[in-house]
Nucleic acid binder design. Structure first.
Lengths: 129, 129, 129, 129
DNA sequence: GTGGTCTAGACCACA
DNA sequence: GTGGTCTAGACCACA
């Protein structure tokens, strides 16, 4: 499910971090549940274990996961609370960025809205209503 | 108007490129019009001339601008055409990114729409309606 | 009484070693007396038996304890002598470390002394005087 | 001035961090002042640049230093404030550790005090008075 | 098997 | 020159 975009400017370790957070937020990864092992995920993503280790280390420092030596890494109990806090911030950021971009390309609000809804529709299984 | 986000993972030269393209698209920079000189822009953005030079070099290679030795850099006649081509691609990218992000954070389509419209409203001078 | 600090950089086996030595020095563990069994101590400390085994193995190599197959591990007769030798070394080490740390934090001798005595007082049942 | 103890259990990157903090606290490194470059310090300490980079990265995340791409790392303005906060915590920790150690070795308060003052005297140029 | 530290060395952005 | 990311691979503590 996790993917690395090798063409992106975003560092690999950062992509891993963001996607782990995303999965916690989605509930795919729940409190107490183990993350894939560093080596396992590295193999899966075709990247170096050190890079995954860095992502995990930073997630630990940010209290989304915790580590037990020799056992593995696990989602913390308060991870979802932390993510919920980050959530609004993150969402505002990405939408503001998109809108800003559209404005720079000289679109007005209704044009922006039209494009947005087209994209949203394409990526939704059910009709929006 | 142009700004460098020093905390972003996007390289400075890329930020400059994107913003120049944005201004061409906006019509703030028109065909034939001169760009700010490398040194001038570098001073303005508090970055090294080499970095601006790289942005200009790539914009030239992509045919958005051309260089006249001793005179400076100018917007090409077909720059807007080129940008128009990029436009849809760019917009789709940024909106898809935003929507993707929202989905990772476990929002459904109508929630995403609500947030989007709130942000869009905040950043528009006239009411949308 | 023995405790593992899971946040410390000091390896678990080393923490066990140090604390066993401490108890021999304290007289809580006397020559000839049996140590808790490897499994027992491992269970108590919530760590793996292998880790306790390593601590015991090294203590045996350093002649603080000896092993009787099928019976267990016991404190040697000359353990206290050995520890007495280590004692001054150990104490100097820890105090030098503390003083060094204080100096790095830019305190002068009298300030260091003041802090030290405050801490010592706090951790002593009877008044020092 | 900075030294790596290769026999210590404390990781190299952590030793570097602690000593940089110590020098900031001492005033040897002042706000705005540049740290030695990563490569320079690595060469000096006979360790790998990656290890120094990790120390610097963590110091940056803890807001003791900041980084300017292509320019170097510099002490932040509020570094001393942050250190002052850490100061008491750190000092209590090290002194408590030393005292605890002494108690485990079965010394009473006055003996501990005697040893402490002997060590303190040895490491002070002027008599304490 | 698990994670943690470290090295040697490549390649990039930036000054 | 500066810092940042990444890889390949070694060695250690711990389960």
């Amino acid at each position: 499910m996790i993917k690395i975009d090798t063409t992106s400017f975003i560092p690999f370790y950062e992509q891993v971090k963001q996607q782990i957070k995303g999965r916690i937020s989605l509930g795919t990864l729940r409190p107490g549940e183990p993350l894939p092992s560093i080596r396992e995920l590295a193999t899966l993503l075709l990247i170096n274990p050190n890079t995954v280790a860095r992502a995990y280390r930073e997630l630990e420092r940010e209290r989304f996961i915790y580590t037990r030596k020799g056992k593995g890494c696990f989602v913390t109990d308060d991870s979802s609370v932390l993510i919920r806090k980050e959530r609004t911030v993150i969402l505002n950021q990405v939408f503001d960025a998109a809108i800003e971009e559209a404005k720079k390309l000289n679109l007005n609000a209704s044009e922006i809205k039209k494009i947005f809804e087209r994209r949203l529709g394409m990526r939704t299984s059910r009709p929006i209503l």
